[in-house]
Nucleic acid binder design. Sequence first.
DNA 1: ATAGAGACCTGTGTGC
DNA 2: TGCACACAGGTCTCTA
Length: 292
Amino acid sequence: MPELPEVETVRRGLAPVLEGTRIARVEQRRPDLRFPFPEGFAARLAGTRIKTLARRAKYLTGHLDSGETLIAHLGMSGSFRIEAGTSGTPGAFHHARGKNEKHDHVVFHLEGGARVIYNDPRRFGFMLLAKTDALDAHPLFSTLGIEPLSNALNGAFLNDRLRGRATSLKAALMDQRNVAGLGNIYVCEALWRARLSPRRAAGTIARKKGPPGRRAEALAAAIRAVIMDAVAAGGSSLRDYVQSDGTLGLFQHSFAVYDREGAPCPRPGCGGTIARIVQNARSTFFCPACQR
DNA sequence: ATAGAGACCTGTGTGC
DNA sequence: TGCACACAGGTCTCTA
């Protein structure tokens, strides 16, 4: 579900409520999500203050004044919502969105009475606690690639990183060890913008020597642009993703290829038809006419 | 190294 | 209406 733009949107929605706020109490309603919660999870959070809420790839990281960091991943169907502490019917908009309270797995009761609730029907998400000063060395983070919005993403990086790789370009971009935070939607969209086929061997966009070629440069620019555009739109709302205040992301209206099998390619003058293929057990959408 | 399958879960849409 | 099946913003683990 959430890729980098959705997670960043969640972060921006939660930050005003969480940053600088003390957690009064945590209600953990089941022993596990994708993994068991860490030992003493609720007790280790209770009474701590959240200094900052950050993001790395698709992970949210809440840095606590206890010296620990709360790491949260939303999996395919995780979401947070904020409920005011005083008036209002709990879960009102939630019902309006057709969600199900039975999948409210964690409730953060904040000082002042507001609540932040984690809902995750499929339970592919998880929450962990780790020492803040050793975060980069954590197994989840140590192998992650670069952030797509950082200056590190450029033609030279992709040229070096993908050179000689026989795997498909689609699979290489889905691999979080290269560029971290991309997922199925934004890889498809970036490849369309760069006019590159998802089936092409990843190494074919690289040069053996010298400066990167136009394909690597175009791909780097396309990834950056699509992620920036999606963040600006508040992410994509398909089945169950909503922002933490209940409003919908808008980027799904800007999809060129994702979930558009059989539709005309939106590139002016192309005239192609969007196709769907399966790569690594995931749907890939692309235009066979203009993506080469 | 890397691909392919299966695993983890629930919900929704489709076709019969 | 029921039922079966395919599929979904992710990622880990196992086998070849």
